Computed example of a mutant assay.
Amino acid sequence: MKFGIIVFPGSNCDRDVAYVTRDLLQQPTRMIWHEDSDLSDVDVVIVPGGFSYGDYLRCGAIARFSPAMRSVVDHANQGKFVLGICNGFQVLTEAKLLPGALVRNRDLHFICDRVPLRVERTDLPWTSHYQPSEVITLPIAHGEGSYYADADTLKSLTENQQILFRYCSADGITDAANNPNGSVQNIAGICNLQGNVLGMMPHPERAADPVLGSTDGIQLFQGLLAALDADIPAIRMG
């Protein structure tokens, strides 16, 4: 199993993700510069968080035109796995690999926090290591992380079970009081119709090392690897 992590000018979470895939999970990992279009040796592509191209115009708007992202679209269309985290989620919506858009947070403030999420679906590789309706805690750090989609898109996302994560309370309640950024329907992460492309604003890679006090995030990567029959080491707390 080989991971490829796209690196744009302004990426700042690429090394965090590489630490998880290469060091914690001991999987081959290649850093892919934004001008590189050859993804032929990669099984899973990760578009990391940060500020691609300085977030000029709007988040992810320039990154979608990079040679690497054109190849990511082809990679996804072949049914291969793609994960976009934070800015990476924004890039995936700009590239039309996922529906909807990420807009300014409800209170127009940058948010850096740890928040509870409810796992909405567990029959996909991404979430197969979680329990149905399990509440996990992951960090968020964004200024434009409020998910928006029109009524028809939301209806389609709901009917096709494409919503994988929702912001919630510690006991799983999804309401306005437990919505940190104003995302419609408390949406924190969605997948495409086929389930091979996932975009999420929270950072699973920042809750993957026991040293950080939480491994809620590494289960996302472990579920994917298990589904693809990769040999992965155990990550234990304590």
Rank of each mutant, 00 (worst) to 15 (best):
Gly4Glu: 02
Phe8Arg: 07
Ser11Pro: 11
Asp36Ser: 07
Asp38Ile: 09
Asp41Val: 11
Val42Glu: 09
Val44Gln: 02
Ser52Ala: 14
Tyr56His: 11
Tyr56Ile: 12
Ile62Arg: 05
Phe65Cys: 03
Ala68Val: 04
Met69Pro: 08
Arg70Lys: 15
Ser71Cys: 09
Val72Gln: 05
His75Arg: 12
Asn77Val: 06
Gln78Gly: 11
Lys80Pro: 10
Phe81Gly: 06
Gly84His: 01
Phe89Cys: 00
Pro99Met: 10
Ala101Glu: 04
Ile111Trp: 14
Ile111Arg: 15
Cys112Asp: 07
Cys112Lys: 13
Arg121Gln: 10
Tyr130Glu: 15
Gly145Ile: 02
Ser146Gln: 12
Leu154Arg: 15
Leu154Gly: 08
Glu159Thr: 11
Gln161Asn: 11
Gln161Trp: 12
Phe165Val: 11
Phe165Pro: 07
Arg166Cys: 03
Tyr167Met: 03
Thr174Val: 02
Thr174Tyr: 06
Asp175Ser: 15
Asp175Leu: 14
Asn178Tyr: 15
Gln185Gly: 05
Ile187Cys: 02
Ile187Met: 02
Ile190Glu: 00
Cys191Gly: 10
Cys191Met: 05
Asn192Arg: 07
Leu193Met: 11
Asn196Cys: 09
Glu205Cys: 00
Leu212Ser: 15
Asp216Val: 05
Ala226Asn: 05
Asp229Ser: 04
Ala230Lys: 07
Asp231Met: 09
Asp231Tyr: 13
Asp231Ala: 15
Pro233Arg: 00
Ile235Asn: 06
